[in-house]
Design a binder for these strands. Sequence first.
DNA 1: CCATGTGAAGTGATTCACAGCC
DNA 2: GGCTGTGAATCACTTCACATGG
Lengths: 213, 213
Amino acid sequence: MSTTKSDHIPRATIERLSVYLQVLENMQREGIDVISSGPLAEACDVNASQIRKDLTYFGEFGVRGVGYHVPALIQSIAKSLGVDHEWNCVLIGVGNLGKALLGHREFAKRGFHIVGAFDCDPFKIGEEFSGLEVVCTRRLKERVADLDVRIGIITTPPERAQRAANHLVEAGIRGILNYAPARITVPEKVHVEYVDFFHHLYSLTFNISTRSS
Amino acid sequence: MSTTKSDHIPRATIERLSVYLQVLENMQREGIDVISSGPLAEACDVNASQIRKDLTYFGEFGVRGVGYHVPALIQSIAKSLGVDHEWNCVLIGVGNLGKALLGHREFAKRGFHIVGAFDCDPFKIGEEFSGLEVVCTRRLKERVADLDVRIGIITTPPERAQRAANHLVEAGIRGILNYAPARITVPEKVHVEYVDFFHHLYSLTFNISTRSS
DNA sequence: CCATGTGAAGTGATTCACAGCC
DNA sequence: GGCTGTGAATCACTTCACATGG
């Protein structure tokens, strides 16, 4: 459904698109209406032709001799990423992290609505967090079907991540955001993204320790 | 100070090292003592020679014909990443996210100690969160020097991120973990890692929208 | 014999340099 | 004149294939 010009888009391009979006939104807030690849590249800390090439995977958004119209480019990138509309999500694992995510207003602001919270702990079932009642994981499938949910968020302990993933797959979910510190196995049609809090911290410590002293 | 064999290590290798570490720790918990690159690769969802090559950047940790000793490999990777010892951190910006991070016990468990919380809002200064008193950002430098802090965490709103970064640089910090949704500019000697909550979600929505439907 | 460690080959992403266009 | 869009060239990473060694 997305208007992709080219067939294969580098993973790295997708990662950068979020960066461009963030920087462009900040520019828009500052009232900048038109930007050329040069200064945009500097603000994003990448090469200018990199930006131009990344964008042409999805279409021709610029005007030669002028640059890119900021609000239009934001729209185009949002559409390319599939965030030009709202998404419903369910969350499995209502521990500390799960509760924190449920209370994080920013998700909804960005169009990601957590419409179901699940847990297998009978002591948690029936409790309410941020206006959402915790439901038994067994009832995941019906809820996913009823509410047109395509994204599942896993916030269980590592040893229960695979089981949560199985439930999500079984319920027909299309993508999984996995906060549990464990790898999971899913059919190829389901996409998984891993969120690791220490990943970035480790990159920092590596760089601090290695480069100079 | 780290025992790097080769001079240039791909950024991608460092990213994978965190994955290996996570998977190996889970294996250790399950009582696995020795692992060869084949099954480890499968668990990490990468190619087996990729793992072997990644590891040899830092040394020769395996035994030919046998494989890798799990606890020893965990130690070696931790040392390579610079997480074989504790790190002190300071945090700037005590909003919702900042408070959540201050209360997140997992950081300390992994050897990252937040030893200072700073904010420029006079209403927040003096308040206490998770046993840490919020201090005026002006006093950052003295604290960083006193407590041997090398990592700064930015959890301010986007428009105040650059100022926070300037304070951290001025205080002599070596690395910055930036949770604010804005790019920052720092001298080359200072390393920055950006944490974006929506980054992974965007990858998901892109993949769900594009690949099949 | 089996699995590591590693040069060589292959693949993919980035940057360059310039033609095309407003 | 200036900036985009894009093939060609470069650079970096990944995978292969096998020699090496417990």
